[in-house]
Amino acid sequence: MSVDLSASKKRTLRKLYLALALISAASIQTACSATISGSESTSASTPDAANDAAPVDAATDASPVATTASTDHATDGTTDDFGSVIPPLGAFDRLDPDFIRYQPCLEMPDEFLAEAGLHGKEILEGVGEMDGVCAFAAKPEHGQAVYKLVGSSFDFEAYKRIPGSIAWDETRQGTPILHHRGEHLADSSCRALIETERGTLGTVFQSFEYGNESYQYDHCDEASLLLKTLLELDQENEH
């Protein structure tokens, strides 16, 4: 009986951490959008909310009640031939009337996500579905931590204007990957970003191991590793 209770508690905690990541991401989205949009030229039109997923961080003042159930359907061992699911890498113009922001949480098949080690997708009802923000429990060895996927209509230059620290990585082909640590969560969260023709694709790694001085995982390294895994899997499926 004690084993069952422990397992139940772990599942509850998992749901809680996923919910914290999702709800807090939605709660600061407007502020991030204002920070970026306010620094742009006044001649540029402001993108509407449905096409403007701002960069996301995470806070802890949230409740888990608004998250959806898991949408992981890749548990039967079968894989569909879905081909490439990530837009071509490159520059984009979000003010182009034909621009459609990429939403990885809604456009990446569960089978593809499972290949990358992402299971049990959680999307915040309403806002999460509109903005394409979702979360997944990280690997057990990461402790209490989550991954997030997000599609943004902001480019690298816009992200550079968000308070925090910037670093750079690259794919095997030499395509730049931007690392951004928000100033308020520099010790617990990092996003890895790459530009595509349909906006910026981002992966986020966030830990809840607050005060754990022996925590061995670098948040930017983990976010970048996931992003590279997704890109490499996509290239394999394309061929």
Score class of each variant (00 low, 15 high):
A19D: 01
S45L: 11
L113Q: 14
S153K: 05
L5I: 07
A54P: 04
G182C: 04
T229W: 00
K9R: 11
T30M: 09
Q235N: 06
E122T: 14
E183T: 10
K10Q: 11
M108F: 14
D4K: 03
E238Q: 05
F136T: 06
A135T: 15
E157I: 01
D131L: 12
R101Y: 01
R14M: 05
G132H: 03
C190K: 02
D221P: 02
F205T: 07
G120P: 05
S33T: 09
R14K: 09
V204A: 03
T30H: 10
I166N: 04
P55G: 13
S24P: 02
F92I: 03
D57I: 13
W168Y: 14
C32Y: 06
V150P: 00
K148M: 15
M108I: 08
S43A: 13
F156G: 04
E111M: 08
R181N: 08
E238R: 08
R11W: 05
P64E: 05
P163A: 14
S153M: 03
D48L: 10
G202H: 00
L18Q: 08
L5M: 04
A21Q: 13
A7R: 09
H73T: 15
S189G: 04
V56E: 02
Y159E: 02
G120E: 10
D72F: 10
A116D: 13
H119I: 08
Q173H: 12
S207C: 05
A74T: 10
I86E: 03
D72E: 11
K160C: 00
M130F: 11
D61C: 09
Y217G: 03
E183F: 10
C32E: 14
A138Y: 02
S63P: 03
A137R: 14
S2K: 06
V204K: 01
P55H: 04
T30L: 07
S224K: 04
D96G: 07
A145F: 05
D81T: 07
T71H: 08
G83Q: 01
E107R: 09
N237S: 09
G117H: 08
E111T: 15
P87F: 01
T35Y: 09
A186I: 03
L118P: 04
E209F: 00
P104S: 13
A54Q: 04
E195M: 00
D131S: 11
H142C: 12
R11M: 07
E209K: 02
D57M: 06
I194M: 00
P88D: 09
T42L: 12
A62G: 04
E129I: 08
V85W: 00
D52L: 08
E115D: 15
N237K: 05
E209Y: 00
A54Y: 03
S43C: 13
L106Y: 00
M1S: 08
P88M: 01
D131A: 11
D96A: 05
C134A: 09
Q206C: 11
E222D: 07
C220P: 02
L16T: 08
T196I: 03
P47E: 15
P47N: 13
T79N: 09
D93W: 06
